[in-house]
Design a protein around this nucleic acid. Structure first.
Length: 357
DNA sequence: CTCCTGGGTGC
DNA sequence: CCTGATCCCAGGAG
């Protein structure tokens, strides 16, 4: 089973501010460059009717919703995190294995709990939806299938407040009519290739030349896509061994390629990363720096340390070197800059906070 | 094989 | 006009 909270951030805001009901609600990430720079994180369905959805620049959203009495709000991650935890606890309690997939998504293994009966699984899903709505006044969309792949695609099939069950015998028929873009991992770039190759539906992909697909996407991804098109997915529900990186990025007050100015902007981010590392008793052995230039092109550099470290000074020193090198190898000015630590390992004890239990 | 960079994704 | 965080993969260099 896959559960997806509907327009999550915006739905939470609607609940916290009942006076917003009936209005377009737009939850935004403000970059701080000017009053309205930034992008839309999530919006409710009313806002979506005007083309205001995740990723749209705030300035564009303002234009599209002019005169529509829309509400623009900054993201409140702590609040959403709290509620997410409560919802995921409910989901977890109904099956034998749970996987936290993201702040608004989770997988549940219910094969045993449902005795292999899809009708039973469906009733469990209705129960879960009821409890989530009862406790948090949130609707969600649920998919049930013989694999994570099918459950995930199914949860997206009917939204909001949907419930879609795909039994093993129905898998192929269910997939065949769907656009290839519905396969997780197929985004704009892959879709572009598929369109040029005349592959529109998952059925088209299933009947495509496997050699050509592997040639274009590589052995791993290509193989996964071909299997997905046939409804084959053997991945198990469960968390894949903890977080692998911690990163922070910021939009600079103005475009620059001045090292001091960039490092000044990085200070808060570095302290933030350091406190997270220490709080969770982790250590890192790779430090990375990245910039996004005035043309939105990304550049990154990273360095492996001789020994794992915990200290912010280490991040600061390496990041400074990396930014120095980046500046020397480029000519453009930078709009955004960030730092990252990778190759995380648990330092104390053995209780690495691998998300939920 | 490891290290590093860039690209793609999806939320 | 363009957020912020994470993961995965390919491919080149050594």
């Amino acid at each position: 089973m896959h559960l997806d909270l509907d327009y999550f951030f915006a739905q939470v805001e609607e609940n916290d501010h009942p006076e917003y009901t009936g209005k377009p609600v737009v939850v935004c990430v403000y970059s701080g460059r000017d009053e309205t720079s930034g992008a839309v994180s999530t919006s409710n369905y009313i806002a979506r009717e005007y083309g205001v959805k995740a990723g749209v620049p705030i300035k564009e959203a303002i234009r599209k919703l002019a005169g529509k009495d829309a509400v623009f709000l900054p993201v409140r991650h702590e609040r959403y995190g709290e509620i997410s935890q409560g919802v995921m606890q409910i989901l977890d309690s109904y099956g034998e294995k749970f996987e936290y997939a993201s702040i608004d998504e989770g997988f549940l293994e219910i094969t045993r709990a449902a005795g292999g009966d899809y009708g039973k699984a469906e009733r469990v899903a209705l129960e879960i939806k009821k409890e989530v709505f009862g406790k948090f006044r949130l609707t969600c969309s649920v998919g049930i299938g013989p694999s994570k792949l099918i459950a995930k695609i199914a949860s997206d099939f009917k939204k909001p407040d949907g419930l879609t069950v795909v039994k093993p015998q129905e898998v192929q028929q269910f997939l065949d009519s769907l656009p290839v873009g519905k396969i997780p991992g197929v985004g704009p770039k892959s879709s572009e290739f598929f369109a040029s190759a005349g592959i529109e539906t998952i059925s088209d992909l299933r009947n495509a030349d496997p050699g050509r697909i592997v040639e274009v996407f590589g052995k791993k991804t290509g193989g996964w896509l071909l299997n997905a098109a046939k409804g084959i997915d053997e991945s198990e529900v469960g968390n894949s061994g903890g977080q692998k990186q911690i990163s922070r990025i910021a939009t600079l007050k103005r475009n620059t390629r001045n090292l001091g100015e960039i490092m000044g902007a990085m200070e808060g981010l570095i302290l933030d990363v350091e406190s997270e590392v220490k709080e969770r008793e982790l250590a890192f052995s790779v430090v990375g720096a990245n910039v996004i230039d005035e043309h939105m092109k990304t550049l990154s550099k990273s360095r492996t340390l001789p020994h794992p470290a915990q200290d912010g000074n280490e991040v600061r020193k390496i990041a400074r070197e990396l930014f120095y090198e980046i500046i020397n190898e480029t000519k453009t000015e930078f709009r955004r800059a960030g730092v990252k630590v990778e190759k995380l390992e648990s330092k104390k004890g053995q209780k690495n906070l691998s998300e939920f239990s």
